[in-house]
Amino acid sequence: MLGDLVTPTVEWLGDRAVLVCVADPQEREGLHRMLAEALPALLIRRGLRELLVESETPSPALRSDVERVLEADLVPQDVASPTSRVVHLPVHYDGTDLPLVADLLRCSTQDVVRAHGEQAWRVAMMGFAPGFGYLEPVGASTLDWGSLPRRESPRPRVPRGSVAIAAGMSAVYPQEMPGGWHLIGVTAVTMFDVLDEDRPAVLSPGDVVRFGPAQEPS
């Protein structure tokens, strides 16, 4: 299989960061661990299909340093993935876009709810807002999430806690903010807490998220 491995491309993003473009999420996870181990002084952020490696100050050697790590051992296919943390998020599936989503995916609203709850999601990257995780499906999917586009025009205000899907991904809006994804429900979990110095965000890159219907208050 070695012949199939291609060293990922590394391009400058300004004078103190590079983007490493990867083929797929598995490669991204493996390379992140390799780079973090070899270059501990650098800040590494994940994208969907890239890693952003950032130095505090301009660094002409940054690109070659990163390339050297990537070339040293290609991609370690056998690196055991550390056990991902699993985050459970109870959802009230009553989002305003649920019927539209069901139409677009050609199924019933119950099918959407069931498929979203059964799907394992992984935090691919954080961004857009503090605590906002872009969740990608991992493993088998019963619905083709990728066939659902973003809304044609974004809403100026999406309520805090909204659970949304679009463009093959899912997310929870940690605060009220503009948003262009389809709203299928809401969670009561506080996704970002500025007063929690140790762990302000519920989600971290690499975490696995399991959604499920919230218990109705009895």
Partner: peptide, 10 residues
């Protein structure tokens, strides 16, 4: 375009 990580000054 899909969302990508970016940086101050981009």
């Amino acid at each position: 375009l899909p969302s990508r990580p970016t940086i101050v000054g981009a």
